[in-house]
Design a protein around this nucleic acid. Structure first.
Lengths: 225, 225
DNA sequence: GCCCGTTTTCAGCCTCTTTTCAGAAATCCA
DNA sequence: TGGATTTCTGAAAAGAGGCTGAAAACGGGC
């Protein structure tokens, strides 16, 4: 799961790469428009972070070109200006989102996650939390040398919990995101699955556990012991 | 610090209000376009969360009207569709951001913070008062190296107290905001919870304490010693 | 149709939260 | 000072939410 960053300013490019890697992706960096275009056309990226001002070929034209070539990779555009005209132009060139510098790390992450999710992909490849790692595509949980596969529903629940460890996910969220908006599943369905997942965590011997916060939700936490 | 939510679906409106309040704002809700417009024109809000589909007056037109009246409150638009045309139209109407349903709490908060910050205001997501810090989303109180989690009701009460330390919050306010408008909870319920919270502050060893002002309410104060 | 793993359902138990109550303490005011 | 009022808090009861084992129902592959 790779993200392409096309940004000529080295410091910003580095920072972005760090953030993206924190999210569980591998980052590739290109510093000019033409190199960026070549790379983007490869179509192997999960998302592209694209600065508007670039040497060689500007962001708008780069974007139009790859869209013309039917590369549908989600694109997050970055610009120093927040002019309406620019933002509209960005969207019309085929950007999925438009972020004005400066921005917060959290905001950037949220937007990146949002555009990737919007195109239907499941978020990063391998996510790590303490001694536990999780591959959402495969649905594999690994702790040290032990590893096991999750069922479809278990996998989706784990994905949501892994998205932001420590921050609780409510049963309501789980029900609508995993079972669907108009399903008639009830709270106990979630509880049953949480129970399944806990058994598997125990089996793996991980220090990570799923903690219930009454009336609030479930979150991943590292065991105190 | 108020945020106006213009959203006709009551459930979503309620959820958004909760989130916004967790961030330390006061939420006002309007369920239809015309009422929303009146409220928005007052210009007293820090930000407006605006659904596109509304009875009475749609979001685009509402937004254009208030911008024509030179109300520059940041606006976060919500829509069920992610059509390019819609997004362009939203931006052209004067929206600061465009969020497609469904979205994550975190994503929503990040965007809201972003648009407010962009217009110059600042909001910390962790609130600090003397040696005590409080994270409303997580419901965690921290003092130096010690930290603990609050229950649902404790959390809500603490949120309200933290909103304006030193300024007292009445039992009546607490009852309506925490227990709800039509609950039959009595003053002693509040008193009991204040007592719980005091115990927890003691446990943390914080200098912050909850002071009662007879017939007026409770406020956070720093201990004299 | 049968087998398998997955998913749902149910019931009983357990735990934490919330409410209730009663007496003690503090505060106010005449 | 003394009585009325308000607030505090420990303990217990009531309630809601959460857990889990077992069994039933489902559904895809052979």
């Amino acid at each position: 799961m790779r993200v392409l960053i096309i940004e000529d300013e080295p410091r910003l490019a580095g920072t972005l790469a760090d953030i993206v890697e924190d999210m569980g992706y591998t980052a590739a960096i290109r510093h000019d428009g033409n190199q960026g275009l070549d790379e983007a056309l490869s179509g192997v990226y999960e998302a592209i972070v694209l600065d508007v001002m670039l040497p060689g070929l500007n962001g708008f034209d780069l974007l139009k070109t790859i869209r013309a070539e039917h590369v549908e990779t989600p694109v997050l555009m970055l610009t120093a200006r927040s002019e309406l005209a620019d933002r509209v132009r960005g969207l019309e060139s085929g950007a999925d989102y438009y972020l004005t510098k400066p921005f917060e790390t959290l905001e950037f992450q949220a937007c990146l996650r949002a555009i990737i999710r919007r195109k239907g992909a499941i978020i990063p490849e391998i996510r790590q939390f303490d001694d536990l790692s999780f591959s959402p595509t495969e649905g594999r949980l690994t702790c040290r040398d032990r590893s096991l596969l999750l069922s479809a529903k278990e996998k989706e629940i784990m994905s949501l919990l892994f998205l932001n460890p420590h921050s609780p996910v409510s049963k309501e969220t789980l029900l609508t995101k995993v079972w669907g908006y108009d399903s008639d599943a009830v709270d106990n369905n979630v509880e049953a699955y949480i129970s399944f997942l806990r058994k598997k965590l125990l089996l793996l011997g991980s220090r990570v556990q799923i903690t219930a916060r009454r009336r609030i939700g479930y979150s991943l936490e590292v065991s105190e012991l």
